[in-house]
Design a protein around this nucleic acid. Structure first.
Lengths: 221, 221
DNA sequence: TGTACATCAGTGAACGCGCGTTCACTGATGTAC
DNA sequence: TGTACATCAGTGAACGCGCGTTCACTGATGTAC
């Protein structure tokens, strides 16, 4: 057990091997997708026998769960850093796209096709709401600071709905207009990103970045 | 071989069994996702031995390919029918959502996480462009019939790009504004739909339909 | 209408494979006196 | 500093499993004369 900041050599070694296992796992996911992840294959690639990995992970499921956790953490860190340095939605958007392009399968591990049986570990919801919180922080200061609902504009209905259904932003002071912008940021950018990463734009002859920037421009104004 | 419209009893039987195999395949995909599809499991469920399926499909890959083809076809038919009966983007949007909710895994087979090695059969691109064509037909008649580019509005840059990169709409007379609307329809609705189908809204306490309708309203105006 | 032959759906055994996982064991590393 | 013991990383054999796929074969259905 680690006491305080002290780390025994054995613990350091353990941490290193664990890290390498995860690295190889990511490589394998990048090469064949998450369903093709195999403990034995990882072990072979590391020059070890299969059962050795059980010293580090209880089994395949625990490894995948850990990878999902890491993916969420990495995204949350990226978004938080971007928010701290640029502090507008455009900055967040670019950081998100860069992060996604860096490792498409990592993106898909979070936002891709769900496996019908599987349920992500509960604690990722904490990280997920951290991401939402950062998004709301950045979406908040934007122009529309109207508290009274203007029945005329086309978003009135949505904002009324959001005002009454905000469990996901329960402890955040953001106003309906900010909630709306944060959600749009999320859904619209995900729309383009996931299609781009899946290759649906290839062969169409247009530049995904152009579409993406255009959406960002709409979100920021 | 079928000559003209004539069909021998044997051919009818073959077609029926093929159809049942596909049905079971869809059930299995719905239950465990596409990677979990197994020929032997399908055979067992139909009360046959595994090798029997090789009379109907050359192998697992051909079956999956066939399912992808069917999924595209089904979507194209749905969109075409909706376009014929309602003829506006809102109608198409609702038809799309209904179709997706009907069988989420079918949606994901087209728009979900791609398997790194696999490449969809070439002929689905034909169906894919049929879908795009219908979309463009419906996006066209809308208000913005300006041919000259207005440098002031925020979509000017995107429309200029689209005017010069339109391989995907090569033989369609749609103007830049219509191209833009069709693409937005696609990316924005996909953004919400895929998040909804993957369950990312559950636990947030808001109604995906409300978000979806809001986007549709923006697209139609 | 009846017989001879061809077609073809489906079976059962078998092959080789890689998977996740368990278990008893070896040998190296660290700890206590 | 040296010895006795405990901890723990990694091995190799083994288990049971389900997979895709092949092959030689049986038996039913259709076709030709």
């Amino acid at each position: 057990m680690t006491v305080g900041g002290k780390e025994t050599p054995r613990e350091r070694y353990r941490a290193q091997v664990r890290a390498e296992i995860k690295e190889r796992a990511w490589e394998q996911i990048a090469a064949a997708g998450a369903p093709g992840l195999s403990l034995n294959a990882i072990a072979k690639q590391m020059g070890m026998s299969g059962p050795a990995l059980y010293r580090y992970f209880a089994g395949r499921d625990e490894l995948i769960t850990e990878l999902i956790r890491d993916a969420y953490r990495s995204l949350a860190d990226t978004i938080r850093t971007a928010a701290a340095s640029s502090a507008d939605l455009a900055g967040l958007g670019h950081a998100l796209r860069t992060w996604a392009l860096e490792d498409p399968q990592r993106y898909f591990l979070i936002y891709g096709t769900p496996v019908p049986g599987y349920h992500a570990p509960d604690d990722v919801t904490v990280t997920a709401s951290e991401i939402m919180r950062t998004l709301l922080d950045t979406a908040q200061p934007g122009g529309n600071a109207v508290v009274t609902v203007d029945d005329g504009h086309p978003d009135a209905r949505l904002e009324a709905h959001l005002a009454q259904h905000r469990q996901w932003a329960a402890d955040h002071p953001a106003q309906p207009a900010a909630l709306r912008r944060a959600l749009r940021f999320w859904t619209r950018l995900h729309g383009i990103l996931s299609l781009e990463l899946a290759g649906h734009f290839t062969g169409m002859g247009l530049d995904p970045a152009e579409l993406y920037d255009n959406e960002l421009r709409h979100l920021s104004e």
